[in-house]
Structures are given as structure tokens and as C-alpha cells.
Design a protein around this nucleic acid. Structure first.
Lengths: 190, 190, 190, 190
DNA sequence: AATGAATGAGCGTTCATTCAT
DNA sequence: AATGAATGAACGCTCATTCAT
């Protein structure tokens, strides 16, 4: 039941937004009562936090595995992180969109918890870039922290428009983003 | 007074979100009454739409000027568009953050109006890229529409973290983004 | 202007009801502002009272003339009163419907004023009936006061359904009501 | 509780009118809160509709029984319908007065539902009259549809003035109305 | 584990009215 | 004679939350 509530909540939060979705809305669709909801969650915010936690923890775990894989070069790790984010978009689109949009509705404490993990995720990307720079694979005149933000912007923005069912399959999107990020727009002969 | 309401609304919508900000919140801070608010706006949604309209119209106008400037090469136009977006972030940060977050709260009609302008803005970037491709300046194996989304992701994401008061002045951010977008991460010698 | 406000108010009060019609509604349709309204009327209730006063005074005046006409027999006077009410329905339908429906929204003082005139109107009918009874034209086993109410019920109810544009022209309606009231439903041979 | 809300609402709607009675007014008198009201009714209009439905359905049922009773002649059925309406006035005066006054505040759909039943009630009277005409008991030069309206005017108007506690007991009112309707005002010798 | 009833605070909106100009 | 700006009270309604059962 708890899981069912979370699933339905994700569906509705994505469609209508957190504050526009009432607990009544959620339980109505499940055919249970509000009392039930409060048996499993102490508050609406707690439910949101559960969704956040599950989401970001999972993402960080998968990223950690990529980084721990020492058989991959920094360049390959970077590509794998892009792949991770595009894959996630496909698997957990609704969850991710909620993640980007509704942070404001968490309590200050919860926000800090999430922000810490989020920062860790970003710092990991930064580290990969730095390693690449040290190895001379990446240019070293660009600041790694900004580049990490840039990578995240590139991929995260996709949640706003990309649908895997369209012309571009996920694999190709990863390829395009990787190519762009690694070699840029300009033609070599110019 | 109408202008004062809009200013205060932008401030609060950014801080607390559209649906969490009540009209009472807005007028309380201005020391007027709700009746006053409704003298100037027909609804809370209308106020939001006013903010949207003003914002996106202004942005499209400035982009149009860049594109109309035939003394600029596609590459330079692209850089100018990046500069436009970063400049705007600095001038209109709050307005822009609202723009990205609260679309859901517009009426269907209004959403369509905004989406049309937004699409125009994106199509303009696409066009610049396409022109660059045709002139052989840009690689032509990457799809222009995705690249437009990529540029927008790169710049728009900045609204989430960039503060001009920090170590990186706006000019340099434009430079970093341009360099990354044009030539990529990889060192030439690799 | 005062007259224009009254006309428009009658139109709207009939269509939407007194309390559902706002002063804004009235002045909007006339292209003037609320300030204007309050130049001519001290309150919304005062406007309603003006409508009431004009209406019932006019009606009583016309009834008085019928009763003063000594060339008419009681029976003829009764028919003329029915005709007056049907004529009025046609000339002043909206005004009359307001009269029947919105009394509740007058102040207590005003209600009393109106009720007095209304009672006078009814008492006049009663008097005609009584005169008819004394002259032996009307049965005298039926109480005149109830009969006055009956006549008013018969005619006033027409405001709920009768439209002069239909199959039955006003003249005929008067005839039907008169016939029914004077001789009843039953066939003489029964 | 639902029943208590309906009772109190009827009392207040009759005294002050539907739109002048706020939900706050209703719940205040019952010592509960507005939230409670909305637990039982989806809207103020729904409450009104409940009152309408209950009222008119009950009335139509009782009328149907009279009409189905084949031991009664048309004349007797007509008298019984008058009795039904007067009895109802006494039992359900407030409900009935609301019924006559507040239809405007129902939604279009609901109005249509009620109008259908109301029309059925009227058509039933018409039918009784027509049967009487065919049997030669009633005059046949008067149109039955108008006569049905006339009967309804006669009885329904009583809701505006008749109090059973006065000089005239209900039984006698029925008798007066029946006599008037059947044989009219005029003395036979005239 | 779940229900049903109730609360209380707040929300967006309306509106009669006022008043300086 | 009329306007434009503002008020303040009320309204219908929503909703997260509580709690006895």
C-alpha cells in the first residue's frame, strides 16, 4: 500500500504539481481514505521527501559504481555518466521531473539533506573532469566546477523536452551530447 | 501600484513559488488590501501571465536584433545569444526562474501563447546553427534541433546556480560556455 | 442617466436576480463607473426601492380609476381589474417579476411601505367583491378576503408562464380568467 | 448531521433567501464548521438541489396516487389535488416557498431535471381536466392547459399569505377553492 | 490497518461602498 | 456630473491534519 501511494503520488505530482495535488486526489484514485494515508506517512511533505530520497540515493549509487570502475578512462567515465542520466530520464522521468521542480516544498532540514547528496553527485563529475585534465586528455584552461554544471545543464534540461519515443533513440542522444561536449560544434578544418 | 504589485509578486513567486504565495502575502507586504489587487488584475493567473508575457517578449525582441545583424557571422551570433541569456540571468534572474518553473499554473490558452514564443526563440537558434552548417563553419553531422536544446540547457541551467557576484564574472561565463560549445573538452593534441 | 440605470437594472435584476446582479454589472453595460451610480442612488437597496415604488404606485393608481368609475358594475370592475393585471404583465413583465421575487431585499421600513400599498390594492378587490355580494350578484357564502387572494393568485401566477406572443392573446386570457372566476368549471347541466 | 444541515438550511433559505444565506450562517447555528458542511455536500448548489429533489419527487408521488385512484371522478380528483397542495403547504411550507423562489440558483442541468417533473405535475392536472371535459362534467370551451395553470396559481399563491393557524382551517380553504373553481362567483339566480 | 467524521486555517474572488479629485 | 483608486468584510470552497473507533 505504501508503495502504491508513492507510485500514484509520483504520477499526480508530475502531472499537476505537488501543491496542486491534494492527498484526497491521491487516495481517491486508490480507493482508500485519507486516514489510510496518514497511517503510512506522517505528512504530505514526508511523502515528498521519501520520493526525493529514493530517487537521488539510487542515482548516486549508480554514479559511484561508474567512478569506482578503474578500467574506464575519464573520458569514458564522463560518457557513462551522461548515459546514466539519459537512462534515468527514460526509466524515472516523472520522478526526475518532480525532483527538479518541487524541492521548494521540502522542509529546510530535508532540503539540506538532499542538497548534500546532489552536491556530491556534482563534485564527482568535477573530479572526473579534473582527473582528465591532469592526465592531459582534457583542456585545462576551463574551470572544472563550471564544466560540471555545464554537463548537468546539458543532460538535465532534456527532461523538459526529450521523449525516447521520438526520432532520436536514447543511445544516439548520448552520442550527440558526448560528441558535443568533447569536441564542440566547430569543424576541425576551420 | 500595478508595477509595484508585479515587482513584489516576482520577488515572492521566486522565493516561495506561485501556488504557495497567496495574494494576501503580496498585498500585505505592500500595505494594501486584496481589493486593490483585483482592481489591477482580474485574477492571480492573469498576474502570472503578465509576468510571463513581459519577460518572453522582451527576450525574443533582443534575440531578433542579434539575428537581424548581418555583420555577425553565425558563430558570433551564437555567442551573442549566449551573452543575451547570461545578461538576462543577471538582469532578470527572478523573472526567469519563475518563467522556468510556473508555466503549469497558466491557463491552457496562455500556455499556448507562451509556448509559441518560446518555440520561436528556439527555432531561431536552430536556424543560426543550420546557417553555420551550410557555411561549413559548424560540423554537419550533429542535428541542429538537438543542438539548440543543448545550448538552451547549458545556459538556462545556470539560473539554478550561477550568481554574478561570485568568482566568475558574467563575461567569463559567456566565454567558457562559448569555448565549450564551439570546441569541446578534448585537448587538440589528443 | 438615472432613468437609464433603472432600466438596465430592471433588465438585469429580472434576468439574474437582485443579489446576483452587481452594481458593476449594471454600470459596465452602460459604460459608466460605479462612482456615477452612487451619485444617483444612495445604495443598491435604494435603487430597488425606487423600482418597487414606481411599479406599485402606478398599479394602484390605475386600479383606483377603475373603482372610481361608477358606471361599471362590480362584475365589470372585477373583469377590469383582471384586465389591468394582464395588461400590466405585458407592459411591465420584468418590473413585475422583480416585484414578486425580490421584496426580501428591501429594508424593513421599505417593506412596510410597499406592503401597505399592496394591501390597499388587495382590499380594493375585496371591496368590489363585497359590493357584488351585497347587490346579490355574487354568492355570499364565500369569504371575500379569500376570494381576493384567489383572484390575485390566478392572475399573478401568470407572470411565471404566460407569454403574450403565444397562442393565447391577452384579451382571451382575460376572458378565460373572468369566465372561470365568475362561473366555474362545471357545466350547467350537471 | 446531513439531515440537520438540510433542516437548518431550509429554515434559513426561507427566512433570508438562498443567496443571502451563507454556509457560515448555516453551520454557525449548528455549532459545526464549514469543513463539515463540505463533507456532506459538494457545493451550496448541491444542497439546494437536494432540497428541490426531495420536495418535488414527494409531491409528484402523492399526485400520482390520486390520479391512479379510479374510484374517484375527475371532479373528485381535482378536489383531491387541491387538498394535496394545501396539505403540503401546511406540512412543507418552507420547503415549498424555497421551491417557488430559488430555482434560478440551480445549475442549468438541475433546472431542467426539476422543470421536467414540474411539467409532469402540471400535465397531470391538465389530463384530469380533459377527462372531465370528455365526460361532459366540465365545460369544454375553456382550454385545459390554461385551466391547469389557473388551478396552480390559485393554490400556489396561498404559500404567500395563508397560515393554517388563522381563522380559516385547511379543510375550509380546500372547500372554498373547490367551490370557486367548480362553480364560480356568480350567483345562480343571476 | 483503515475508516469516517470533523476541524480550522487559509485561499482566490466578489462587491457594496467611500472619497479625493 | 463623473472618475479612479481603494477598502474591508464576506463568501464559497479546499485541504492537511487529527482522532475516536
Amino acid at each position: 500500500m505504501k508503495e502504491k501511494i508513492i507510485e500514484k503520488a509520483i504520477e499526480l505530482f508530475e502531472k499537476k504539481g505537488f501543491s496542486t495535488t491534494s492527498i484526497q486526489d491521491i487516495v481517491d484514485e486508490l480507493g482508500v481514505t485519507k486516514g489510510s494515508f496518514y497511517y503510512y506517512f506522517s505528512s504530505k511533505e514526508q511523502l515528498l521527501m521519501d520520493i526525493y530520497n529514493e530517487y537521488i540515493t539510487n542515482l548516486l549509487d549508480r554514479q559511484t559504481k561508474i567512478i569506482a570502475n578503474k578500467t574506464l578512462s575519464p573520458k569514458e567515465q564522463l560518457i557513462e555518466i551522461i548515459r546514466l542520466l539519459i537512462d534515468d530520464l527514460i526509466e524515472n522521468g516523472p520522478r526526475a521531473r518532480i525532483y527538479f521542480r518541487e524541492m521548494r516544498h521540502l522542509s529546510e532540514n530535508h532540503i539540506n539533506t538532499i542538497k548534500k547528496i546532489r552536491k556530491q553527485f556534482r563534485k564527482n563529475i568535477e573530479m572526473v573532469i579534473r582527473t582528465g585534465e591532469e592526465q592531459g586528455v582534457f583542456k585545462n584552461q576551463l574551470p572544472a566546477d563550471i564544466l560540471a554544471f555545464a554537463l548537468l545543464g546539458l543532460t538535465n534540461w532534456s527532461y523538459n523536452w526529450y521523449t525516447p519515443a521520438g526520432e532520436i533513440p536514447p543511445d544516439q542522444l548520448v552520442k550527440i551530447y558526448s560528441e558535443l561536449l568533447l569536441t564542440g560544434l566547430l569543424d576541425k578544418d576551420h
